[in-house]
């Protein structure tokens, strides 16, 4: 069964009393799981349920409502290309396709070397720098396919 590190468990316990209700600690706890594991496995929900003394069904509900929690494994670099209006108008969709082709991976799947997952996502709030993408926590902006490939390679992709 997945378990958080001792440090992670400590953090979750702190979050439980940080807000007015312990339920508010679920999102921070799921973030912590994702930080330690890259994605949120099913048994992490049971672990959190025991650790937080909250119903597993409720934690599951929260997990599945929010798109930022990965419900299956992702590559070391999770590349999320915006394909909403302003980015679509400026080549965002073509950028996403070009990256899949270059790194030989289908959307939302993990590349053979486990390094890369490419997803198309909705507006990331950086429309003046279209097309853009988010690699893990980092925004990369004003891209061309060539520039994006160069940056991904520099980041170890």
């Amino acid at each position: 069964m997945f378990t958080l590190s001792a440090e992670g468990q400590e953090l979750v316990k702190k979050e439980l009393t940080r807000y007015e209700t312990p339920y508010s600690a679920i999102i921070p706890a799921l973030y912590r799981v994702q930080k330690e594991n890259g994605w949120v496995p099913e048994d992490a929900v049971l672990h959190l349920s025991q650790l937080m003394n909250l119903p597993a069904s409720h934690i599951n509900e929260v997990l599945h409502f929010y798109t930022m929690f990965n419900k299956k494994p992702v590559g070391k670099l999770h590349i999320q290309v915006c394909t909403n209006v302003s980015c679509a108008m400026n080549g965002g969709r073509e950028l996403a396709d070009a990256l899949c082709k270059r790194f030989n991976v289908k959307y939302d799947e993990v590349s053979a070397d486990r390094k890369i997952t490419i997803s198309r996502v909705e507006c990331l709030g950086s429309c003046d720098t279209a097309p853009m993408m988010q690699v893990n926590d980092r925004y990369l902006e004003n891209l061309t396919p060539e520039l994006a490939i160069k940056k991904i390679t520099e980041m170890g992709g």
Partner: peptide, 28 residues
């Protein structure tokens, strides 16, 4: 004052959806 980070849901920009989200519920 504190920060609460969302987790990817447009609907949480709707004020009552946001309230649900901070309460630890689905952001409905």
């Amino acid at each position: 004052m504190d920060v609460y980070a969302g987790a990817g849901a447009y609907i949480c920009g709707e004020e009552t959806g946001m309230i649900s989200s901070i309460e630890g519920l689905k952001g409905q």
